[in-house]
Computed example of a mutant assay.
Amino acid sequence: MMVDFSEFILRVLFSGGCGLVVGLDREIKGKPLGAGAYVLVAIGSAALMVVTLNFALSGVAEDEAMTIDPTRLIQGIVGGIGFLGAGAIMSPRDNGRLKGVRSGAAIWAVGSIGIACGLGYLKEAAFISILIFVVLNFFDWLHIRGNK
Rank of each mutant, 00 (worst) to 15 (best):
G87Q: 05
V39N: 02
A65P: 00
V3D: 00
V50C: 02
E62H: 13
V134R: 02
L10M: 13
I113M: 13
G118K: 06
G96N: 02
A37T: 13
W141M: 11
E7Y: 13
L84V: 05
A56R: 03
D4A: 13
F127D: 09
S58A: 06
E62C: 00
A88L: 00
F83Y: 12
G80H: 09
V22P: 07
V41N: 08
L136M: 08
R26N: 02
L119K: 07
V51I: 14
D94I: 11
N95A: 02
D25S: 11
L13V: 15
G30A: 04
G114C: 06
V39D: 05
R97G: 00
A125C: 01
C18Q: 10
H143F: 06
M66E: 01
G85P: 05
L40H: 08
G111L: 02
K29H: 15
I43D: 11
R145F: 06
G34I: 09
F8D: 03
E62P: 00
V134L: 14
W141R: 06
E27M: 07
G120V: 09
I144G: 10
N137D: 03
D140V: 10
A42R: 08
G80K: 08
L122Y: 13
N147H: 08
G87L: 04
L142K: 01
K31R: 15
V60W: 11
V51T: 12
I144T: 12
G79C: 05
D94Q: 13
V39F: 12
G111C: 03
V78F: 01
L53K: 08
Q75T: 12
G17F: 14
A116M: 14
L57F: 09
E62G: 06
F55H: 03
V12D: 14
R97F: 06
A86I: 09
S129C: 07
I77W: 11
H143D: 14
S15V: 10
W108N: 00
V39A: 07
R72E: 12
L131G: 09
F83D: 07
A88R: 00
G87T: 04
I107T: 11
I107E: 02
F83N: 07
D4W: 12
G23A: 01
N147T: 14
F14R: 00
R102P: 04
L84W: 10
I28W: 10
R97H: 08
G34W: 11
N147R: 14
Q75W: 10
I68R: 11
L10W: 15
L57I: 00
V78N: 05
C117T: 03
F5Y: 14
A61E: 13
D63W: 08
G44T: 07
R26I: 06
Y38A: 04
L24V: 11
D63C: 03
M1C: 03
G44V: 01
S129E: 02
